[in-house]
Simulated assay, not measured.
Amino acid sequence: MPEGHTVHRLAAAFRDGLVGGPVRTSSPQGRFTEAAQIDRMVLLGAEAVGKHLFLAFAPSDDVDLDAPVVRWVHVHLGLYGSWTFAGEPGFAVLHAIGAPRVRVGEQESALPEPDGDDDDGDGRGAGTADWRYLLPRPTTRLRIQGPRGLADLTGPTACELLDGAGRQAIIDRLGPDPLREDADPERFVRRVLASCSPIATLLMNQQVVAGIGNIYRAELLFRARLDPFVPGTELGRGLVEGIWEDLVELMRYGARTGRIVTTQPEHRLLDARIMERTRQNGDDDPTVVPREQSFYVYHRQTLPCRLCGTEVRSQELAGRTVYWCPGCQKVRSRKAAWIGQHPAAPWALETGDD
């Protein structure tokens, strides 16, 4: 399931490529019949809240986002959802987010040009590779097409049309999103400190904090040197505030690059292995940190900890697998001394940012 930073990247892709003008909307699969209600409307805006994407549609571009006439397409990708993009050069820096990660047009056939010309001499109409003539896959729940490109949605957990009140009701159920300017970290701190649930469970509760998935959960707790099973009520305020601060920096890096990297540079070559070889965006780029070097404990069960050599463990907790190092991660109430004090944080080292 895509974690929160990827949904923020999706919202940015829509803002850059499709927001601001009228678009065509359809549901090739036929399951999102509401697509006909917003067809030819203007895509006014796109925003992410945790793992939820909201796309605003209105009859014209001079409508305020909070106007009653605005309709919101709410999408939650879940485990199997995916957005794929195609368009003219520069239309979208992303080609796909979610699973499966394929490009629009892969394993698809193209429609012939209207005039039937065959300038390429290959038995097809001229320019049939043009994105305008790409057929959607039969499983496409929603296609949004603008003058410069298109986006196809397949396999989402949720795809629904809401009014403003419906959108707000979803947002009100969520905890603060570390990537939003309006996030209130105090809400996160209070909810953690007041709960008897294990901190590992709380970090995956979207009502406590919006956008964290299993990778961020495992890596945050390792970086905090914190036992995943400690109840929130046993933690100190400073420690919980430190987890929030670390999460903000890690997710900002993820939103900027499309990758999750939690290891410090000096630790990446220490036992650079991982138990499950899944892909991240950019894995074919030799300039990025390989997945095998990106994590401390996530999918490193049975392997030695990069720092202390203790075997990394895994266990099911509330329906999801939690990963941790028993040697490094202890019951503690204070912020781990190294969090926030490393001068060569991964986001600074890789990007050159201050």
Rank of each mutant, 00 (worst) to 15 (best):
1 M>E: 07
3 E>S: 05
4 G>I: 07
5 H>I: 04
6 T>C: 06
9 R>Q: 13
12 A>K: 10
12 A>Q: 14
12 A>H: 10
18 L>S: 10
19 V>T: 13
19 V>S: 10
22 P>V: 12
22 P>S: 15
23 V>D: 04
23 V>N: 05
24 R>D: 12
31 R>W: 01
33 T>L: 13
34 E>W: 02
34 E>V: 01
35 A>G: 09
38 I>H: 05
39 D>I: 03
39 D>Y: 08
43 L>K: 03
47 E>H: 02
49 V>W: 13
54 F>N: 10
57 F>D: 04
60 S>I: 00
60 S>W: 01
71 R>L: 02
72 W>E: 08
72 W>K: 04
74 H>N: 01
76 H>L: 14
77 L>P: 07
78 G>N: 11
79 L>T: 14
80 Y>K: 11
85 F>W: 15
87 G>M: 04
90 G>K: 06
94 L>Q: 13
94 L>Y: 01
97 I>M: 14
100 P>Y: 09
101 R>N: 05
101 R>S: 10
102 V>C: 07
104 V>Q: 06
106 E>V: 10
107 Q>N: 11
108 E>I: 03
112 P>K: 02
113 E>R: 14
114 P>M: 00
115 D>G: 05
115 D>T: 06
116 G>N: 02
122 D>G: 03
123 G>N: 08
128 T>A: 11
131 W>V: 02
134 L>R: 14
135 L>I: 07
137 R>T: 13
141 R>Q: 15
141 R>K: 08
145 Q>V: 12
146 G>Q: 04
148 R>S: 09
149 G>F: 00
153 L>P: 10
157 T>S: 14
157 T>I: 02
159 C>W: 02
163 D>C: 00
164 G>Y: 03
168 Q>S: 10
169 A>P: 00
171 I>F: 02
171 I>W: 00
175 G>P: 14
176 P>R: 08
181 E>V: 08
183 A>E: 07
185 P>H: 08
196 C>Q: 15
196 C>S: 14
197 S>M: 11
199 I>K: 05
200 A>M: 04
202 L>W: 03
203 L>Q: 09
207 Q>G: 15
208 V>T: 14
209 V>E: 07
213 G>Q: 04
232 G>R: 07
233 T>D: 01
234 E>I: 00
235 L>S: 06
242 G>N: 04
247 L>M: 13
257 T>I: 06
259 R>K: 05
264 Q>L: 15
265 P>Q: 09
266 E>Q: 12
268 R>I: 10
270 L>W: 07
273 R>P: 04
277 R>Q: 13
278 T>Y: 13
278 T>F: 13
288 V>G: 00
291 R>N: 05
295 F>R: 07
295 F>C: 02
305 C>Q: 08
308 C>S: 07
308 C>W: 11
312 V>L: 10
313 R>C: 12
313 R>L: 12
314 S>Y: 01
315 Q>H: 12
317 L>D: 11
323 Y>T: 02
323 Y>K: 03
326 P>E: 11
328 C>T: 01
329 Q>M: 12
333 S>G: 15
334 R>S: 15
334 R>T: 15
339 I>F: 00
340 G>L: 04
342 H>E: 13
344 A>M: 08
344 A>F: 11
345 A>S: 15
347 W>T: 03
349 L>A: 11
351 T>C: 01
